[in-house]
Design a binder for these strands. Structure first.
Lengths: 123, 123
DNA sequence: ATTTAACTACTAATTTATTAGTAGTTCTAC
DNA sequence: GTAGAACTACTAATAAATTAGTAGTTAAAT
């Protein structure tokens, strides 16, 4: 999957959230200062060319929706991040999580449940 | 902390690993095609200006070392990632990573112990 | 002692990313 | 029917990031 620039990423986050969007919808979601309509249109055209978005003509305006799933993009990103920050050491990563977060009892047991149930499914 | 560009990030990863480095050391660690010496020097100067690196004159060449700790940078990044990919939910993020890994029973209980003991210390 | 390599500081060029202008179309409302 | 808003496709300008050139210094090697 092609890398996204910061602006492309920002716009994709919006479209993933909305699932389908016209350019005006994207602009609406963008924070101030709102970019020019054509600026957004340009980035979106790049995203189509990159194969991340597809466009459909609804009436006479384009509606855009993701081709690449959010989860795919996320996984791509996290693979790199995990390696970059934890050198593929899972225990290190977990130690980090445990230290950084102030887990409530609920969160902790929820977490353990999730891990356990997941473990069971796999074995 | 100031955001780092891709190249800046790449060079910082190397210097964090080496702890101290001359420009030649950084180039050595960079993959082919090796950039021009001055290209690396420019980026490093930017990093000094951003306050991420400091330089020391050793003989008559500069040696560079991090001002910002790797852990600080990592934590900054992970905070963003949590927000971007997991709706700011820590358990979701952790569940994701847990699923990615094939935890052995030992690892799992070790993990739980770590989190629990940490919890105890804090309360 | 002169050549070479690695450095210095500084500047300039190139590439990539982002923003937005121009010109023309369609639709809606007065 | 004409004015305005929102769109189209295309192009151009600007800004940010990256690469590398110039000129001069230092140190070591033949």
């Amino acid at each position: 999957m092609e890398k996204l620039t910061k602006r492309e990423d920002q716009i994709m986050q919006i479209i993933w959230k909305l699932e389908k969007a016209f350019i005006r919808d994207v602009i609406e979601q963008l924070p101030e200062p709102k970019p020019h309509y054509n600026s957004v249109a340009t980035i979106i055209k790049i995203l189509v060319k990159k194969g991340v978005l597809k466009s459909e003509m609804i009436g006479n305006t384009h509606q855009y929706s993701p081709v690449v799933e959010f989860e795919t993009y996320r996984d791509d990103n996290l693979t790199n991040i995990k390696k970059k920050f934890f050198g593929n050491s899972f225990p290190k990563m977990m130690a980090y999580f445990a230290k950084e977060e102030n887990l409530s009892e609920e969160e902790l047991s929820e977490l353990i449940d999730v891990i356990k149930s997941n473990k069971t499914k796999k074995s």
